[in-house]
Structure formats: C-alpha cells, structure tokens
Write a protein that binds this DNA or RNA. Sequence first.
DNA 1: CATCTTCATGAATATAATTCATGGAATTCA
DNA 2: TGAATTCCATGAATTATATTCATGAAGATG
Lengths: 326, 326
Amino acid sequence: MKMYAMTVLQARQNEKGNGGINMLALKHLRLIEAIHDSGSITRAASRLYLTQSALSHQLVALETYYGVSLFERGRPLRLTAAGEILLALSHDIMPRIEAAKRELSRLVEDKQSGRLRIAVECHTCYDWLMPAMDAYRTNWPEVEMDLVGGFHTDPIALLADDKADLVIVSERGKHKGVVFNPLFRYEMLALMASAHPLAAKSYLTARDFAADVLITYPAPDRLLDVVRRVLKPAGINPERRFAELTIAIVQLVASRKGLAALPAWAIPTYLERGYVVARPITKRGLWSGLYAAAREADAGRAFHKDFVSTLREQAFMSLPTIEPLA
Amino acid sequence: MKMYAMTVLQARQNEKGNGGINMLALKHLRLIEAIHDSGSITRAASRLYLTQSALSHQLVALETYYGVSLFERGRPLRLTAAGEILLALSHDIMPRIEAAKRELSRLVEDKQSGRLRIAVECHTCYDWLMPAMDAYRTNWPEVEMDLVGGFHTDPIALLADDKADLVIVSERGKHKGVVFNPLFRYEMLALMASAHPLAAKSYLTARDFAADVLITYPAPDRLLDVVRRVLKPAGINPERRFAELTIAIVQLVASRKGLAALPAWAIPTYLERGYVVARPITKRGLWSGLYAAAREADAGRAFHKDFVSTLREQAFMSLPTIEPLA
DNA sequence: CATCTTCATGAATATAATTCATGGAATTCA
DNA sequence: TGAATTCCATGAATTATATTCATGAAGATG
C-alpha cells in the first residue's frame, strides 16, 4: 500500500478545515467491528448492507487519516494494535449509545402497549429464539413477551387476527399492512449416516433422495424446503417418516433409517460425534431465509425494531454458518 | 413547531433504508453539548465553525427522527429530559473517544520527540495557561513541557531559532513555515475607580484617556492594544505608569492613580469588591484575539494539536466572557 | 497453473450536509 | 408600545461527502 510510505505528518496535513474532529465516526467503529467479526470486508459489507467498495473506501480513508493500518491484509483480515484500540473503544461505547437510544425511545413511546406475542413457523427456530428473548428482556423488561404455541396453517393471519404481534416465517409474502424484516439466510444440509453410500458424494441431488426414506418434522410439505424446492420440482416423492424433535431426527438418521434435511446451524452439535455427516443439497446448495413479520403499525416502534435487531444480532452471534439477508 | 404534531410512528416510518442506525452521530452529541454550554444555536455555531443554519438543520433532523424535542425553545435554550439523556451520553463517551484517539496518535508518532517549550507574549495569559498545562499533562505525561521565560521583542523568531515550540501571540502574522491557530477572542475593558467621573459613561472613547494616567504592563506599545489601536490612531498619548502584575495594576486603579485596560476575563475577580468598575472601550468595544503559533512541521502532530485544543477548551471553560475566533 | 475470491482504486453517481437568503418570533431598549 | 435587535426555522441552491460501478491486481485454493 502506498499509504505506508506516507508519513504521519503528510497524512495530518491533508486535513481540510476542522473535518478532523469528525474524522472518526460511529460508522467507522461499526465498520471495524463488522470486519473483525466476519474476517473480511466483503462479508462485513453484506452485513452492513453496503458494497465492498464502500467499506474499502471507508477503511482506507480512516487508515490514511491516522497514518496507520488497522487491519493486516490477508485472510482473514486481522486487527493491528491500532485496530485493537478502536475495537476496544467500540465495545466500550456502543452499548452505551444503544442504551441511550433505548432510553430516548422509552421516553417518547407509550409504555403501556409494549407487548410481543411471538409465533414461530419453524421448529428449529426455538434454538436461537430463546437466548435472543433472554437478551432482549434485559433491555426491555417492561415489554410483555409471549410465545404463541400450536401449529398454524397461516401464521401471517395471526397478525391480522391480533393473536400475535410478531411472526417468524421463511418467506417474504405480500400481505397488506404487514411488514417483513429479513433476519438471516442459512443453508439446508442433507444429513445421513456416516456409513451411508451417499456420504461419498460432495453434494446431493434430488435424485439421490429417491431411493431412501426422508425424515422430517411433521409439517406440511409447503414448509419443508427440500420437498417444496428440490424434490417436488424434480417429481421425486420419497417414502416419509416424521419426528417432532431435532434430536430424534438425528437419531433416526444415525440409525440408518433414512435421510434428513436440516439447517446448517442446527447440525454442528450432532456432527461432532461422527455418526452422521452433512452434505449440500444440489451443487449450489439449498438456501432458505427467515423473516420477522409484523403489523405495519407496530413495526416502526422502537421496542419492536429493537427486538428484530436483537434477533439478528443473537443469531449471528450463536450461529456461525448463517449469512446476512437483504 | 409542526414537528410536535407529527407522531412517533410517522417520524419513524420516514426512515429510508438502514440510515436509521447512523442517525445519531457524534456530531449530534457535539451539537448538543455546544448548544447547552452556550445557550444558543448561534453561539454554538461559531464555536463549531459552522453556520447557525447548519446547526438548526441538524437539530431539527435529530428531533424529527426521534419525534421529541431536545431543547425548549426560548432564551437560553434549555435541555428537555430527552436532551439530558443525550448530553449525559456525550459526557460519558466523548472522553473515551478522545482518549482512544490519543492512544492511536501515541502509537503512530515518535514518542521521543514530544517536547513543548512555550513562550507567552501577554502577561495575563498565565492565568489560564497554567490550568491548561495541568490538564494537558494528565493526558500527555510523556511530553516535556517548559515555559520560555523573559521578554522577547520578536517571539515568533523563537520558533525559527528553535528556542520555543509554541508561542502565544495576539496577532496572526505571515511568517514562512509558521502556522497560527486561533485560540479565542476577548474584549479589552477600561478599568477605573468606582468613583471616577468616567464611570458614569456607558463606554469610553480615545479622548477619555487623554486627561488621566494610563497604567499598563511594562511592554512595548506595539503589544498594548489600547495604545496601538485606539490611542495612537487618535493621536492621544497619555501619561504612563507601569506595573508588572495584574493585581498591582488593579490596586493602582483602585487608588485613583489612573486608568487601565485589561482583558475582560482578567477582571471579574477584582470587580466583585466594588472598588473598580469596567467599561467598554469605544462604542463597538475593543476586541483582541490570541493565537498559538508553531512551526509548520510541528503543528500537524497529535500532541501539538491536542495541546492547542486543550488551551481552547480550558479557556472556554474558565473564562466565561471570551468568544470563538475564526 | 487455472480458478475463484477478495481488495483497492478511479470515475461516475447518488446522497447528505452546509450555506445562502429570508421571514417570523422572541427579546430588549428607548 | 413601538422600534430595533437578536435569534431561530426553513426552502432552495450549492457544496461536500459517501456510495456504487467497473475493473485490475493480489491472494488463496485445489
């Protein structure tokens, strides 16, 4: 980088006016956190909903201004000592800023109506939903949270019927008065016993499912991505078996009762023991997304938005394999 | 304000993209501090080197976004509860940010060369210079500070001769390789005994000095603003008397030995006792400025810039009558 | 070595911040 | 009370800044 040849004095003298005092902005701290967390500018960019180029420019500008590099270039990008200083600053002040913003929102909004009845379409979601709810509760103790149990053929209808305030679904529909907020996207992996012949392949195709039993949650095909988006289009309809719990599905697979398709983030725990292996479905992989749906009127409120932010944050923190979703 | 008629929901829904997360910026915290300190947008603007309009726009944008007013309109502008939250946040995080920036600078710069030999042109300056040096020392303990004593006909020459690294002067000259940083401007007031006949006037003119003794520091006329900018142009050359210390000058004035002209900020202490009174000089008042001069090569360095910032900050904190200086 | 991914960079574009010009409200002073 | 002054808000014009687009080079991968 040419920058390294530039002396501190040169960098400093390029300052115009008093722009200097505003050189370090909060967006830069977020930038540094995102790059550090994700290890790459490209991934940080998608998480911040900006282009790689934008972030590269931001980073170069900051580094040039202070005349020091903040990341060692390489993969993954690693913080320099200077970068560590700013990351520490970020960890120090960001929570305070978020807390102040919450205080402001609480001051402005009607405190009585804070209520979040949450409905979940996917079984596996509870894994990360619970920690997220716990994290949220500490920031918004006065918000009354509830889980809407049972199974629902049309979960979005729960919003209109005022049975739920927030629904987690796997598709962004077009319903009047309902807002969909993207949470994250994740890969569905095919699960099979380690000794299964298909384990030799680097990825599975629709055809590979034809000869074996498919083990799924007891949900309508419409909600099972493998069936809806891979098997059905290919006209393949394998023998089926059902289990309520993820652990039960994994057990059946390990016992060579058949194949399953589970979110990549639900699997690592079971993979460790070595009885089952996971493989991508189709060459490009089978990716699904999750969205938080809410009534338009609610979606703008601070305690609602903050819940969605918390969901995202907690998910990205605990589920390493997921990706941002526009 | 129309804003008040806007509901929170409306305000929130006006958000575009994810601009929301960057809505609260550090400049807003600085804005709030400046308005709160100065009591008016106009004064805050001059302190931040922006126009009143810019700050008004900033404030309105912030208030509109959060759907709450941060200042009660009136004079002076007073913080609302919401504003207090952000001011508290600012007080909380700004010092941490500044500290991190210093750490960064220290990391980058050559630690050995941190040296500040300071020369002062004006006698009264020691009053605020000492506390400023103390404040600075806690942040930059490794910088070796020294005061260049004695009296100098050409203090700027001390820079070229490498006898001083920073000189505080009252005029922005044009010397090659020397950078002048404005510190603040202040009013010179005429000081007279309470019983003095001129005390009846609301301001003094050059003519008023003709009949009395003028008591000054033992400095060349070139450095005495009353003489150089008021009396000399009017061809008035009053009898003179000299004293080294401010307190001595005030004593002489109180003892009816003559008039003096002192910076407004040096006077309040003495005014309280009631023996002397202060009056503006000329109808518009006689205003002077102070500048910190340094060699170009030094002026860009972090420990130098931070010293100048500290000078300004400390001055504005302890001298209520001073004004920003472009 | 070929391929794929990731960064950096300049130019073009889009967005945001600031100023300019102005009117109205509040405040001060005569 | 009226006149003068100071201050704030606001829309439009301008300027500055941030982001994207398009691309090449460097780095990883197999």
